[in-house]
Amino acid sequence: MKNSQKNFFIKNGFFKIKLQKNKFLHLKNKIKVILKNELDLKQVDLEKFHTKIKIEELNNLRLKVFKKINADKNFKKNAYLSAKKFIHEAVGNELCSSDANLSIQLPNDKSSLLEMHSDFFSGESLFQINLWIPFVNVKRTQSMFIINPSDSLKILKKIKHDRALQFNDINKKFKSKIRWINLKLGEAILFSPNCLHGNVVNLEKKTRWSVNIRYKNIYSPYGKERNEKKIGSFYTLLTPKAITQFNLKYDFDEIIN
């Protein structure tokens, strides 16, 4: 990660990366193979997938694919390896990670919206980075949006205190602050999910397929809420280093506690 990339990230809350090509292709092919098997298709064109499925059937399919990619030993491994050096630069190299979440956005589908939010709305850590990988070229409403950290904070303060404010008002008032992430196939972003982000109805003509995975340093702070957004339930160990493995094996911690 160059200094210019780091500065861009601090100012804008995200930075674009090029994924390792072979790892990215493995991820994309895995999804296509699952779809071929599930729907008994000979060919899968992810961008034209809206011609193969009805909106009412989408969530069930999404859940099936979600389960399969997360049960696959190599999917999350390859996602990590596809962006490893950038993830390390962002949050360190002793990591835990979340499930791989899958989004499918058919054109004009109002049922798959992820309204403007920060991931800490649900008590997740402030110290995680989110790897967002689209499996098609994405632009404008087919993609996701993000609001930079300064503007996000202004909006979040209003969300915290203003009893009359609604998300519709925010969407209208801060529309100009929204930045669409335009990416070509094989590109991805790493972003701080503390920044407000989300999607709207896909008004483009193509379907969007994407996964997102949170990465966090094992020892950075978790959310303060007493909830499940902790290691073991929400995050799983990814790259524990020798001293962590050593202390997991021997109970020295029980002597001092």
């Binding site: 969530n59 798959s112 709305f121 609604q166």
Partner: peptide, 25 residues
């Protein structure tokens, strides 16, 4: 009924902005 994934209330606010916005819509 058709199930759509819901979003939750931000943990840091007591204004119930998500529920108010949902009911309004």
């Amino acid at each position: 009924a058709v199930f759509n994934m819901p979003q939750g209330e931000p943990i840091f606010t007591k204004t119930n902005i998500r529920l108010r916005s949902l009911i309004n819509n």
